[in-house]
Design a protein around this nucleic acid. Structure first.
Lengths: 173, 173
DNA sequence: CAAGATTGACTCTTCAATCTTG
DNA sequence: CAAGATTGAAGAGTCAATCTTG
């Protein structure tokens, strides 16, 4: 395969290594996290993320806010909360604010407990598989780069115009 | 939330930024790629990846090799090839080698054409959303770090013992 | 009509069971 | 019995349509 640099149809050697490494690393880390959560704690990775966010917000959070913070659609959040409610981990309540359209997901004791049990291993897996391999020295730089990538895409998702270039493809977001 | 460094239950500030950035960036980039492929080229991201791999191997590849290279199970590859075959993009043939158990997926002209049409934009999206944000200067380092993460996990998946530490959680792979 | 939220249909993924060949 | 590959059912995600409230 040809190995043009930067402007060609195909990715160059460095570009390809970065992309396939990024893609495969993400898939396999997610696979490990997902299996750990479902095997040892009976919840999906998304269940866990939802519980973390609600806990981080003090125990209650609006559906729409949840959908915005986690990278997920409103429909997905609704069905995830539905499953968590059936298992007694969260509860749906009318929004505390006056808006009659809002629904808040409220963390129940059982959900708080499940979260606490899962979180210790969860963090350790991420350290072992990601942080340790990236290396202490490069970790801050890596974190900043990933935040730039994510923040750029989040800005587009909110409909904000892109600051420094055209970004022709984000219409797919 | 507490902000211990390295050894606690929770991720530290740097660790958390690296992890959430990595996770969200991966999700949103995949979302853009997936939508581009399905909207403009009528194929899923995994369809595209399968076609790329077969093409890279010279136009034919065994199912089991495909499953190993792409991070996917044998069942998933089987069903993906099934769909591609129905659309006339690949064809299943008995393995060229003597082993009567082997099946090879062979790229057909229509598949080659679909791949060519999709690949130009595909590479450009990845450059715009990932490489450009990481930055030219940091890209090689980033690529090496991601390759270390992925290679470490691939080694575990193949059952090889881990070189420099215990890695207690890879049993979930 | 726009925003928050939900539902149902369809698709994709995973898991366990199956079949065939070495 | 182990390895390569396939199948069917169940679980989760996406999309379009719907309902309610501002």
């Amino acid at each position: 395969l040809s190995d043009h640099v930067g402007t060609g149809r195909h990715l160059s050697g460095d570009e390809l290594r970065a992309w396939t490494g990024f893609l495969d690393a993400g898939r396999m880390i997610n696979e490990v996290l997902a299996k750990h959560l479902v095997v040892d704690h009976g919840m999906s990775h998304r269940d866990y993320e939802v519980l973390v966010r609600i806990d981080g917000a003090g125990g209650r959070m609006r559906m729409s806010v949840l959908a915005r913070q986690i990278v997920a659609s409103a429909a997905l959040i609704s069905q995830t909360i539905e499953r968590l409610e059936q298992r007694g981990m969260v509860e749906r309540q009318p929004a505390a604010s006056g808006d009659g359209r809002g629904i808040e997901a409220v963390l129940l004791p059982q959900g708080r407990e499940g979260l606490a049990l899962a979180s210790a291993d969860h963090a350790e897996i991420i350290r072992t598989l990601l942080h340790q391999r990236v290396g202490t020295e490069d970790l801050p730089t890596f974190g900043l780069a990933m935040s730039r990538v994510a923040d750029h895409l989040r800005a587009h998702r909110r409909g904000e115009p892109c600051s420094d270039d055209q970004c022709p493809y984000v219409r797919y977001l």
